[in-house]
């Protein structure tokens, strides 16, 4: 008798706890506007999408309006990168007063090998590079992943 009672009690308890759980589900079912975290991507890509300023996306070398950047071609970022996705090609240039100087020729960035760790940004003493918060980085051709970041004809920005 006792075991039957126990059994029935368990069946009842099972249904009861099922109901408690379902009540919660039902609550959310009837309150569909409460706590939505779903992003309607890609529909919202131009409207509500919120990518934080710090989001570690593609590495870029910002140029100012006179087509000048801050990179001194010191290659510290190249050494800091764990994946070898940076290649700094520099050339020796002679200024008017005869001093030899190393200037940046090509800042080559292989996006396909980058893990967005941010070590290069951290290593750069000039703060010449930053990470943009862009994230739609796919391209059709693999070769397009290798980018030259300095624009043609760009110069080093002199320190004031």
């Amino acid at each position: 008798m006792k075991s039957l009672f126990q059994y029935l009690k368990e069946v009842f308890l099972g249904f009861y706890s099922l109901w408690t759980g379902l009540k919660l589900t039902l609550y959310y079912f009837t309150h569909p506007r409460k706590e939505i975290i779903t992003e309607q991507y890609p529909e919202n890509r131009t409207t509500t999408i919120n990518i934080p300023e710090r989001f570690a996306g593609e590495v870029i070398l910002p140029h100012d309006e006179n087509n000048k950047h801050k990179c001194t071609a010191c290659t510290l970022c190249e050494m800091a990168c764990p994946n070898g996705s940076i290649k700094i090609i520099s050339v020796q240039e002679e200024s008017e007063d005869g001093k030899k100087k190393r200037v940046l020729d090509k800042w080559i960035y292989n996006l396909g090998m980058c893990t967005f760790c941010g070590q290069c940004i951290d290593a750069c003493p000039q703060d010449a590079i930053i990470m943009k918060n862009s994230f739609e980085l796919s391209v059709y051709n693999r070769n397009d992943l290798v980018k030259t970041l300095n624009k043609p004809g760009s110069k080093l920005k002199e320190k004031e």
Binding site: P52, E53, R54, F55, D122, M131
Partner: peptide, 24 residues
Amino acid sequence: RDRERILDIFEGNTGNRLTMNYIT
């Protein structure tokens, strides 16, 4: 749902959601 909120905080402060490389 809750995890997403915490990850948003990570994303905003550290720049990454999963593999942060934030503590150095």
